[in-house]
């Protein structure tokens, strides 16, 4: 009597953790990628912030931002549509995705200014 995996809908409890989990994974990738790159092949400090490393990490940041924005939008539209518990979950999910997106943008900002490995 195994049920099929529940569809990932806006009311699913996974929405409680999905956005911030993406934030965390992005954060780990960012910090880990930077640390490993600086240990293996640090770009010359004379390049300032305009290095390939900053560029790659910046692209990763933008992609994550896009994903979170899309998820937030999906939850938000569902929150307008639904009622009761599903609405609560969807609205909560939308808020959390939005916050995660803002968090990605905010934490990613220094990429524009700082040289990577100093």
């Amino acid at each position: 009597m195994r049920r099929p995996l529940p569809r990932l809908t806006a009311g699913h409890p996974l929405q409680l953790v999905l956005g911030l989990t993406i934030w965390s994974l992005w954060f780990v990738a960012l910090y880990g990628g930077l640390s490993v790159a600086c240990a293996v092949a640090p770009p010359a400090p004379t390049q300032g912030a305009m290095t390939g490393l900053n560029l790659w990490l910046g692209l990763l940041t933008l992609a994550t931002l896009g994903l979170l924005g899309w998820l937030a939008r999906a939850c938000l539209t569902a929150a307008w549509r639904e009622r009761g518990r599903t609405r609560f979950m969807a609205a909560l999910g939308a808020g959390l995705h939005l916050f995660s997106a803002a968090g990605v943008a905010f934490v990613g900002l220094p990429l524009v200014v700082l040289p990577p490995c100093l």
Binding site: P45, T46, L109, P110, V113, L114, P115, L118
Partner: peptide, 12 residues
């Protein structure tokens, strides 16, 4: 804060 920190870096 970030620019203030940047000024303290041993930049070449």
């Amino acid at each position: 804060g970030v620019p203030a920190g940047q000024r303290l870096l041993p930049l070449p």
